[in-house]
Each structure stands twice: as structure tokens, then as C-alpha cells.
Nucleic acid binder design. Structure first.
Lengths: 209, 209
DNA sequence: TTGACAATAGAACGATCGTTCGTTTATTTT
DNA sequence: AAAATAAACGAACGATCGTTCTATTGTCAA
């Protein structure tokens, strides 16, 4: 591993920390240079522009998420076991990610949702891939018979994303220790609903296995 | 209404627009002065510091939300009718708020969740009040017999907040037109669950009215 | 209409922003 | 070890940041 690559990695690690607490707009080249012990220009040369640095940080965050949350659950059996493990891993990630602040991608999702450009594209791509992963996980659970066959897997993913956001708000912004309980109970309710027999529009039971 | 108050109101309106697209950290005194046609120092004098300006913007956003979403549903009958109307109003607010970008408070909730100070306190207060409002609305629905008596109203509010965040991500970041459908279906599922008979831990029906 | 006061403008402050350039120091390859 | 290349530095750029002055303009009551 050559020097340049090593330095770049060190920069990105520090940049990820900084972004997690101060957001993508708080990520500043001067501050980052100071924290890494590099000169502004020396650091700058690694990325060419601030926007490219920001994109690199987002990529790094995704890779970090994949390593910590996605990859560990892939060996698990398809369907509910894998999905449950992923859920626990995701809640743990949101609760205390491997950097001082909250998940940078989640924060950036609301920070940049109205500013078109490469950054928003990167974040949107990340969120789309995550949703697809959840969706496919739910589909496997349907195939495995863990979930009811008429489950809308996209809606399932939508709801799961909602829980994750609500977790961040409750635990991180409001600082309520019981937030994680809400997460687990909301998730349990969602899984229960997905596993239950089909309901009609009035909410009455129309069929039970 | 004196001149100063009028100008201040005009500034805040423009500041709210700017914040909705560029976030609280993108709200800049120079840019705001340019857009309002004032000088930097003239504008500055109205608030005394940037932080006070930001606090004022957050207060303005809350008042705007109250006017557009909360107040209109208060005359409605307690319980499910009021709650449903509030939900529709909130989804509409998230879909197209009265400024060019997304809801500034929602965005700021993830932007500032790791930066203690008056700003975070203001946002946390806003989110706590909103959650309390939802919670009490659900409690009224329980009293009215619309919801099951053992419903956890705090959990209900938690889940509703999650839907709102997922809406913003889906509709605003990803730009998917069917996002609002997901919102309505997720909300319907939640209401159905809250109205349904009690479940035991295994998800089986233990009692039906 | 004048006098008191509020509101706004203008210029300047030091600090920091992202970026460029030429130079110097490390590292790698020959 | 020498030559070639990569990496990092230092200084400076113009722009903008939030903020502080003093001066000027405007508003409103007496």
C-alpha cells in the first residue's frame, strides 16, 4: 500500500468523524487539515475539489455501513433470520456508529434533498440500494413462508426506513434512553403484521392459517 | 405595526425559504441581506447575532406549522377524526410546505442532533411538543373508543414520526411520486393496528370485540 | 415642524473559506 | 546511489463569513 493511499485513507477516516458531527456542510478543508496534521494544500491535492472530497466521504460511509451491518448478516439463512439480524445491526449502528456523531448518510439525506448535484445523487443512490436490500430481504421472507404472500415488500422497506429515522430523532436529538425500546416494539409490530394473515380494508380478520 | 416589526417579518419569511433549501448552516447573513434588499449590517441589527437569527427562524417555522397543520384540526371532534385530519395535513405539509424546500425543522433535527446549544434545544423542544400533540391525540382516540385501550400512545407517536421522515426521504430525496401512497398505506396500517383487538406476544389474536 | 429615536447604510475588521502555484521534501523505481 | 516520480508544504489569491463601528436616513410623537 503506497503512501498516498494510506494518507488518503487516514484523511477519510477523520473526515467521516467530522461529517458525522458537523454534517457535510461542516466538513471544512482547513479544519480537516488541522485534525490530520496536514497542510491545506497537501490535503486538497488528494481530492482535487471539496465536492470530490464530500463524495469520497459518502462512499466511505457506505462502505463502512456495508462492513458493519450488511456483510455480517449475509451468511445467515434467508428470510426472517437474516432480516431480524440486519434490523438489530442497523439499530445498533444508529445507536452508536463507529464515529462520534450520527449516521452521515441519514443526516445528509435531509440536508441535501433539495440541492441537485453529484452529492444528492450519491446519497439517493445509497438510500435506493439500502431500500432494495431490505425489500429483497422481505421478499425472501415471503418465499420462505415467514411473511404472508401478499406483503408489499416496498412498503415494508419504507416502514423500516421510517423506524430508523425515528430512532435517530428520539435517541440522538431528544436523548431519550427508552428510544431503543420503541424501535424494537415498532419493528416487532411491523414483523408481526407482515407475518400475520391477510386483512381486509376494515381491519377485520379475513383468513387465518 | 411599526416599521421594524414589518421588516423583521419580511426577513424571517425570506430566511425561512433560504433555510428550507440550504439548511440552517446554509443560512447566511450576506445572502439573506442580498435577497431582502437590505444591507448586511441593517439586517444584522434586527437579531444581534447569527444564532439568534437561526433561533428566530426555527420559531417562525414552528408557528407556520401550527398555523397550517395544527390549528385547522383543533375544531374537529376529538379522537380518530381529528387525528386523521392532522395526518393528512401533515403529509400535505411534508409534500409541499409553504416554502421552496422541505420542512426546516425536520432537516435540522438530523443536522444538529450532535451539536448541543440553543439551536438543538429549540428543535428538540419543537419535536417534543409535536410528539406530545400526537400522543394526546391518540389518547383521545382511546378514550373515544376508536383505539384499543392498551395502545401505547408514545409508541404510536414514534411510529407516526417515522412515517413522516420516510416520506421526506422518498418523495423529496428520491423524488418518487408513489411515495405518498406508501405514506397513506403505512398510516392506514398503523391506525388499523391501533384500532384492532389486543394481540399477545406471539402475534396471535387473543380477543376480539 | 421640530426633536427624539428607531432603522438602515456603509466601510472596515480579522477569520476562514476553497483554490492555485511554485517549491521542497519523501518515496519509489531504475 | 541516482534519477524519476509522488506527496506534502508554504504562501498567496479573491471571496465570503459574522461582527463592530460611525454616520446617515427614515419614522413617529409632541
Amino acid at each position: 500500500m503506497s503512501k498516498g493511499v494510506r494518507t488518503r485513507a487516514a484523511i477519510l477516516e477523520e473526515a467521516l468523524s467530522l461529517t458525522s458531527t458537523d454534517g457535510l456542510s461542516g466538513l471544512t478543508i482547513g479544519l480537516l487539515a488541522e485534525r490530520t496534521g496536514l497542510s491545506k494544500s497537501g490535503l486538497f491535492a488528494h481530492f482535487g475539489s471539496k465536492e470530490q472530497l464530500q463524495v469520497a466521504v459518502l462512499r466511505q460511509a457506505q462502505e463502512c455501513f456495508t462492513t458493519h451491518v450488511i456483510r455480517p448478516v449475509l451468511p445467515l439463512p434467508r428470510g426472517l433470520p437474516r432480516l431480524e439480524a440486519f434490523a438489530e445491526g442497523w439499530w445498533a449502528w444508529n445507536q452508536s456508529p463507529p464515529f462520534p456523531g450520527g449516521c452521515p448518510i441519514q443526516a445528509a439525506s435531509l440536508e441535501l434533498d433539495d440541492r441537485p448535484g453529484p452529492l444528492r445523487d450519491e446519497i439517493a443512490g445509497a438510500q435506493r440500494r439500502l431500500r432494495t436490500f431490505i425489500q429483497q430481504g422481505a421478499a425472501m421472507a415471503v418465499t420462505a413462508g415467514h411473511f404472508r404472500p401478499d406483503l408489499d415488500c416496498t412498503l415494508f422497506a419504507f416502514q423500516m426506513v421510517g423506524i430508523a429515522f425515528a430512532q435517530t430523532m428520539t435517541c440522538r436529538l431528544l436523548g431519550e434512553p427508552e428510544g431503543l425500546d420503541f424501535v424494537r416494539r415498532a419493528w416487532h409490530a411491523q414483523v408481526t403484521d407482515a407475518a400475520a394473515a391477510t386483512h381486509n380494508q376494515t381491519g377485520e380478520i379475513s383468513h387465518v392459517d
